[in-house]
């Protein structure tokens, strides 16, 4: 016999109405539970002051703080997905796309743009995890490919911000070939001598890790990001043991030699400017800037 009786049954909020972060005035860190105002949290670029936990943010947020004054020109903003395989699982793929577009206000899982960052031109492609887990289908592959082409043609450094669960199953074979396509474009960019910085954020796994995310001239990551090829659950099932603590974290990946450095989001813009500033790509108008600087003037 209980003292209290539940009048209504259980929790009745449907999942799609639950929110990870409340849109209120306050933000509570999911790691250390410390509380700051939303305005302060935003000012800190969604990084927790006391513990340094990096919240997952959108492409729009990166554009906002990476481009000077938040000004940028978006590339291929209208590109959307076809349904070449007429894929049906528990839902038809086009219906899933329409519903996701409505819920997120996004066209697909990546946005690409160019503008000035700390005064230097930069092309940025940033992924949106909330669009079907940041999965890579034809639109993601094509937009990244075109952004790389733009970077190559204008000799502008390219920054890729990955945040993805990997391939988009609903595009099956087409999805797989986006790995090939983006790698082909990066091979050309590399040949042209234009710098490519790959920033891996939480999470970066599967086909994205096994293609463009690991192909940077500089591979860098946000602290604590999950980075791997196979997902932790799959590995756990394969080896039949629990995974060691910190396995597949950015720090683990750095330790094993696959990252150049880990960067706090609040320092990202400056670190990029420092790094890329030392690597002016050789421009067509001024083909040998370094050589020219070294040549002593004959007038004196």
């Amino acid at each position: 016999m209980s003292w209290f009786k539940r009048v209504e049954k259980g929790i009745v909020t449907p999942t799609d109405q639950k929110k990870e972060t409340p849109d209120g005035l306050w933000h509570k860190c999911q790691e250390c539970k410390s509380v700051v105002t939303m305005a302060e949290h935003k000012r800190l670029l969604y990084v927790c002051g006391p513990c340094g936990h990096h919240d997952r943010i959108d492409a729009a947020d990166y554009f906002d703080f990476l481009f000077d004054g938040g000004r940028f020109t978006e590339l291929d903003a209208e590109l959307t997905s076809g349904d070449p395989l007429r894929f049906v699982d528990t839902k038809e793929y086009p219906k899933r796309l329409v519903a996701t577009e409505r819920n997120t206000g996004l066209k697909d899982a990546v946005r690409t743009a160019h503008g000035l960052s700390a005064g230097q031109p930069l092309v940025v492609a940033a992924m949106d995890f909330k669009f079907i887990g940041g999965s890579m289908g034809s639109v993601v592959g094509e937009k990244i490919a075109r952004a790389i082409d733009y970077a190559r043609q204008t000799r502008t450094p390219f920054l890729m911000i990955s945040r993805s669960g990997g391939a988009r199953m609903m595009e099956a074979g087409y999805s797989l070939m986006q790995m090939a396509k983006t790698s082909a474009k990066l091979a050309l960019l590399s040949e042209a001598g234009v710098p490519y910085v790959s920033l891996l954020t939480d999470p970066t796994t599967g086909g994205v890790t096994a293609s463009f995310a690991m192909l940077g001239d500089f591979n860098i990551a946000e602290p604590g990001a999950l980075i791997g090829f196979a997902g932790p659950r799959v590995i756990k099932e394969t080896i039949g043991k629990d995974l060691p603590k910190g396995f597949q974290s950015a720090e683990f990946v750095l330790e094993h030699g696959f990252l150049d450095f880990i960067v706090d989001r609040r320092e990202l813009k400056q670190r990029l400017a420092d790094l890329l500033g030392m690597l002016q790509p050789v421009s067509a108008a001024n083909p040998e800037p370094r050589e020219a600087r070294r040549t002593p003037s004959k007038a004196h």
Binding site: A187, M214, I235, T238, F247
Partner: peptide, 26 residues
């Protein structure tokens, strides 16, 4: 598939495949 093991991750399964894609094009 590529082996989804612990050591495979430590030794960079993703990087190994990615590099092959890029290099094979050239």
């Amino acid at each position: 598939g590529a082996f989804p093991g612990l050591e495979a991750e430590e030794r960079g399964q993703g990087e190994a495949i990615a590099r092959n894609l890029k290099e094979m094009f050239m």
